[in-house]
């Protein structure tokens, strides 16, 4: 192992994480959650057309590889006249993908809140939307933290796929340095360890978040 190379490449890799992996993850996850809530509500709609749209969306997203989705958006869309830069392409692909997976989590979490909570909201005069926002979603949030954390952690790692559509995130940096130094094992191992470190920190954050949200739950 060339330790000097490890040290020298650490800076560029961490920089790649800071300006690539982290913002890509945060922005895509935030947008993905909004999409997911919308899709979850469509799925639960009594209107058969709307609920079909929600189901179809989830089916397509979960039934096709993320890499293929990325390629379709970045390399495929230009042939129909839609040319997107690497960054917007990556954000769109990752958001849509998170939307599909998180939609099922959010739907299950909403359904896990007892019906009486909806009724209690109604009887104090709240509309459906207000009850959802103020009563149901805060309780669903607690339930969905563990599965959503999984989605989030997966996303951190999946952002490495953006390297194939030319986004300069951490793994792209590793590839660049490796292609010059030919130290593939060292660079990719280093990248792997940084992903692992990030995910370990995130798991600890998840733990704290769960404990914080636990304060109103009886044990």
């Amino acid at each position: 192992m060339d330790w000097q190379l490890v040290l020298d490449s650490l800076g560029p890799l961490l920089w790649g994480a800071l300006v690539g992996t982290v913002p890509l993850t945060l922005i895509s996850f935030a947008l993905g959650l909004v999409i997911a809530l919308g899709i979850a509500l469509l799925r639960m709609s009594p209107n058969p057309v709307l609920s079909w749209i929600g189901r179809a969306y989830v089916s397509v997203i979960r039934g096709t590889p993320l890499l293929v989705q990325l390629f379709l958006i970045f390399y495929g869309l230009p042939s129909v006249g839609v040319v997107l830069d690497p960054w917007p392409s990556a954000i769109i692909a990752f958001s849509l993908n998170v939307g599909g997976y998180a939609a099922e989590i959010i739907r299950a979490a909403i359904l896990s809140v007892p019906k009486g909570q909806w009724e209690a909201g109604y009887t104090i005069g709240m509309s459906n939307a207000t009850t959802l926002r103020r009563i149901i979603l805060p309780q669903a949030a607690r339930v969905s933290v563990p599965p959503l954390s999984n989605t989030f952690i997966s996303l951190v790692k999946d952002t490495s796929l953006a390297s194939v559509i030319l986004v300069t995130e951490m793994f792209k940096q590793a590839q660049k340095i490796a292609s010059v130094t030919l130290e593939f094992m060292t660079l990719y191992l280093e990248a792997a360890l940084i992903y692992w470190a990030i995910c370990t920190v995130l798991a600890a954050v998840q733990d704290r978040l769960e404990k914080r949200l636990d304060r109103y739950v009886a044990h």
Binding site: G116, E119, A120, I124, G125, M126
Partner: peptide, 27 residues
């Protein structure tokens, strides 16, 4: 009217006070 339920249906994520003022303030 206002309803008192068999299983109280209090909002578990809200304190007692927050439960009571939710309707008056929000609605």
């Amino acid at each position: 009217s206002a309803m008192v339920f068999q299983h109280h249906n209090l909002f578990p994520h809200r304190t007692v006070l927050q439960n009571v003022i939710e309707g008056p303030v929000t609605v």
